[in-house]
Design a protein around this nucleic acid. Structure first.
Length: 672
DNA sequence: AAGATTCTAAACATGA
DNA sequence: GTCATGTTTAGAATCT
C-alpha cells in the first residue's frame, strides 16, 4: 500500500500515550463497527478507514496492555478469539496510514507491540473481508496479500523455532502467545521478523527512509564518524508530508533517559553514548573508530533491524547509518526494542539454563532435590553414553521417564543411558558402564516401566540383575527360561530384537552365575534366585570405595566411575531391597524414598508384576531354594557392604550427615 | 599391568 | 533333523 494514500498520521509520541488510552476507550464501542460502517457506506474513504484502523489498533493495544496488567498474557482464548486468523507479526499490518511502526514501537513494548499487531491484523483481515474489496482497491488487495505473506513468514518462523525446540506450540494453536514467542525467539528470528516487517514496509513504501539524520545512530555508537554525518533534523517525513516525529524534546529526553537506565542494566555498550547522557544530536565523534568492520554492517548490507540496505562499502554504510538510522524516535524505539530483545533473550537464556540444570538434576539425580550438584552423578553415565554415542533420543522414542513427580534415585540413570547400540541394535558394545551406573533396578523399572517397554533402549542393568529381577518379580519366585525370555521382551522393547544374542546371554548368565538355581518343577525346569549367592557376587573391592563415592558425588567421574561398582551398587541395593528384612524396613516408609533404593526398590519389586504391568504382586519371601547346582568362585561375605555403600553414597549425594540409611541398611545378613 | 566383571559369540550336549 | 534348553569356553571391553 502506498503511503501516499495516507492522509493522516497519528502522533504516537510518549506524550501521546494518554491519548492512546483515551482514543482507545473512545473506540471501544465503535472500533469494530467501523468496518461495517465502511461497508454500509458503500465506500470507504481513506480517512474513514484510517480512523477505523486507528481505533482498532488502539483498542487492541489497550486490551493487550490490560491483559498484561492483569497477567492475562497466556494464549488465552481471548487472544485467539480476537485473532481468529493467524496474522503475521508485522508492522506492515498496522495499516501504514494510521500509525507508523516506529510510533507503535514507542508506544508499546515489543511484546505488546507484537500482540497488538497480531490483533490488528486479525481485525484488518476481518475488515478487509467484510469490505468490498473493489472499494478497497488494489492497494488493499496488495496489502492483504502482504498480510498473508507475513502470516506465512511468521508461521515459518514459528516452525523453525519449534524445530529448534525453542517454542513449544500446541498443535493447532492458531495464535501464538506473543510473549512466549518473543521470549523464545532467537535474535536471528527476531531480526528476521523485523526484516520481514521492513520488507513489507518497503513494499508498501510505508517507510521511505525519510531522511533521518541525526548524527548518531542509536545502536551503535561507537564509531562512526559523525564527521560524515550531516546533522540534520530528525524528522520522519511521512508520505503525506507530515512529520512522523512529533516528540517534544521533553519526551525525547525522557526517552533517552529511559534508554540510559536501561543500558545501565543491560550494559549494552552500544547504547553507551546515550547512557552517558549524550545530547539528542550529539555527534559522538569522539567514539569514532573507523574500523574495517561494523557490527551493523556485513555482507554489504546494513544489519540494522529491519534494514537491509545495500552498502557497497563502509563509507556508504556509515552514510546510510547516519542518515537512515540516526538518533531519532524511530531508531530509539528500535533500539529499545532491540534492548528488550536482548533482555528477553537473556531471560530466556537464564530460564533455559535453569531448565537444563533441572533436567540434568532430574535425569541424573534426584528431581526435586534442593541440593545443587553442578555435575549430577549420572553425568558419568551420560559421559559413557556420549563416549559411545552422542546422539540423543531417537525419533519416536517416548519421552524419557523424567517426570518430576517420580522419585529418582541419585544414581539413577535410566533412560539417560541410551546407547547407540541399543538404539540401533549394533553389535557387541560394552554397556557395562551404563549397567553400572545403576539405580536400583526395581526402582528404575518401576519408574520407567513404560519407557523401556516402548523405547528401544537398552536397560542399564546386567543380564544377571534383570534375570534376577524377573524371577523375583513373580509370586513364586521362579520362572522358566521361556518365561524369562518373555519377561525381557515384554518389559523391554530393546529385547524384542536380536533375540539370538540376548537369549544366549540370558542362558549364559543363568548357567554361569551360581545365584541362579535351576529347579526341576512339575512343568519342567524353572529358574530361581539364590539371593545369598547373588549378594556374594558383589565384588568386595566395591564396597565402600571412597574413590568411587567421591566420583559419584562429584559427578566428575565421567566414565571413570567404576562400572563394576556401579553395577554392584545397583544390584546389591536391589538385592537388599528384596530381602525380607529390608523389605520390612522399606515398607516402613521410614526411608527416604528418594534415597537409593532399597526402599523404593522393594516397593517397586512388589509393584512390578510379572505380567509386565507395574502392579503389586510380589511378596518378600523365600529367597533361594538352594539347590546349589553350580559352584561359583567364592567371594567375600559382606552382603551388607554394598548396601551400606549405597547408603553412604546416597547420603553424600542427597543428605549429607544423615546416617540413618546406613544404619538401616546394614542388617542384610538375613538373606537366608 | 593384572584381575574382575560383563557381554558377546560360539560350540556342544541333551531332550522333546 | 529341528528346536529349545543348558553348559562351557573364548575373546573383548571396561574398570579398578
Amino acid at each position: 500500500m502506498m503511503v501516499e494514500s495516507a492522509t493522516e498520521t497519528i502522533r504516537t509520541t510518549p506524550s501521546n500515550q494518554n491519548g492512546v488510552s483515551s482514543l482507545s476507550s473512545q473506540s471501544d464501542g465503535g472500533g469494530r463497527e467501523g468496518g461495517s460502517n465502511g461497508d454500509t457506506n458503500g465506500e470507504i474513504s481513506p480517512v474513514d478507514l484510517l480512523h477505523l484502523q486507528q481505533q482498532q489498533a488502539l483498542q487492541a493495544a489497550r486490551q493487550f496492555i490490560l491483559q498484561q496488567a492483569t497477567g492475562l498474557n497466556s494464549p488465552s482464548s481471548n487472544e485467539i478469539k480476537q485473532s481468529p486468523v493467524q496474522v503475521p507479526v508485522s508492522m506492515a499490518m498496522m495499516t501504514p496510514q494510521m500509525i507508523t511502526p516506529q510510533q507503535m514501537q514507542q508506544i508499546l513494548s515489543p511484546p505488546q507491540l507484537q500482540a497488538l499487531l497480531q490483533q490488528q491484523q486479525a481485525l484488518m483481515l476481518q475488515q478487509v473481508t467484510h469490505t468490498r474489496q473493489q472499494q478497497l482497491g488494489n492497494k488493499q488487495l496488495a496489502f492483504q496479500q502482504q498480510l498473508i505473506q507475513m502470516q506465512q513468514l511468521q508461521q515459518q518462523h514459528i516452525l523453525n523455532l519449534q524445530r529448534q525446540g525453542l517454542v513449544n506450540l500446541q498443535p493447532g494453536q492458531g495464535a501464538v502467545p506473543i510473549q512466549s514467542l518473543h521470549q523464545a525467539m532467537c535474535p536471528t528470528d527476531l531480526q528476521q521478523l523485523w526484516k520481514d516487517v521492513a520488507g513489507v514496509q518497503s513494499t508498501e513504501e510505508v517507510m521511505k527512509h525519510e531522511g533521518l539524520d541525526l548524527t548518531t545512530n542509536s545502536s551503535n555508537t561507537t564509531s562512526y564518524s559523525a564527521s560524515k554525518v550531516s546533522p540534520q533534523i530528525p524528522h520522519h517525513t511521512l508520505p503525506n508530508g507530515q512529520n512522523s516525529v512529533h516528540t517534544p524534546k521533553r519526551d525525547r529526553a525522557r526517552l533517552f533517559e529511559w534508554i540510559s537506565s536501561f543500558t545501565k542494566e543491560s550494559s549494552d555498550e552500544h547504547l553507551t553514548p546515550y547512557s552517558k547522557g549524550a545530547p539528542l544530536q550529539s555527534t559522538h565523534s569522539t567514539h569514532e573508530e573507523h574500523t574495517a568492520s561494523h557490527p551493523l554492517y556485513g555482507h554489504g548490507e546494513c544489519k540494522w533491524p529491519g534494514c537491509e540496505a545495500l552498502c557497497e562499502d563502509m563509507g556508504q554504510f556509515i552514510k546510510h547509518l547516519n542518515s537512515e538510522h540516526a538518533l531519532d524516535d524511530r531508531s530509539t524505539a528500535q533500539c529499545r526494542v532491540q534492548m528488550q530483545v536482548v533482555q528477553q533473550l537473556e531471560i530466556q537464556l537464564a530460564k533455559e539454563s535453569e531448565r537444563l540444570q533441572a533436567m540434568m538434576a532430574h535425569l541424573h539425580m534426584r528431581p526435586s532435590e534442593p541440593k545443587h550438584f553442578n555435575q549430577p552423578l549420572n553425568l558419568a553415565s551420560s559421559m559413557s553414553l556420549s563416549k559411545r554415542e552422542s546422539e540423543g533420543f531417537p525419533e519416536g522414542l517416548p519421552h524419557p521417564p523424567t517426570s518430576a513427580a517420580t522419585p529418582i534415585t541419585p544414581m539413577r540413570q535410566g533412560p539417560s543411558v541410551i546407547s547407540s547400540s541399543s538404539l540401533h541394535g549394533v553389535g557387541p558394545i560394552r554397556r557395562r558402564n551404563s549397567d553400572k551406573f545403576c539405580t536400583p533396578i526395581a526402582s528404575e523399572l518401576a519408574q520407567n516401566c513404560e519407557f523401556y517397554k516402548n523405547a528401544d533402549v537398552r536397560p542399564p542393568f546386567t543380564y544377571a540383575s534383570l534375570i534376577r529381577h524377573a524371577i523375583l518379580e513373580t509370586s513364586d519366585r521362579q520362572l522358566t527360561l521361556n518365561e524369562i525370555y518373555n519377561w525381557f521382551t515384554r518389559m523391554f522393547a530393546y529385547f524384542r530384537r536380536n533375540t539370538a544374542t540376548w537369549k544366549n546371554a540370558v542362558r549364559h548368565n543363568l548357567s554361569l552365575h551360581k545365584c541362579f538355581v535351576r529347579v526341576e518343577n512339575v512343568k519342567g525346569a524353572v529358574w530361581t534366585v539364590d539371593e545369598v549367592e547373588y549378594q556374594k557376587r558383589r565384588p568386595p573391592k566395591m564396597t565402600g570405595s571412597p574413590t568411587l563415592v567421591k566420583n559419584m558425588i562429584s559427578g566428575l567421574g565421567f566414565g571413570s566411575l567404576n562400572a563394576s561398582y556401579q553395577a554392584a551398587l545397583a544390584e546389591s541395593s536391589l538385592g537388599l531391597l528384596n530381602s525380607p528384612t529390608l523389605m520390612n524396613n522399606s515398607t516402613g516408609a521410614s526411608l527416604n524414598m528418594l534415597h537409593i533404593g532399597h526402599d523404593d526398590v522393594s516397593s517397586t519389586v512388589e509393584q512390578v508384576n510379572s505380567n509386565g504391568s507395574c502392579s503389586p504382586g510380589l511378596s518378600p519371601q523365600q529367597y533361594g531354594h538352594h539347590v546349589h547346582v553350580k559352584e561359583e568362585p567364592a567371594e567375600m561375605e559382606e552382603d551388607s557392604r554394598p548396601m551400606s555403600l549405597m547408603a553412604s553414597v546416597t547420603q553424600n549425594l542427597s543428605m549429607p550427615g544423615d546416617e540413618r540409611d546406613m544404619e538401616e541398611e546394614l542388617p542384610t545378613e538375613e538373606l537366608e
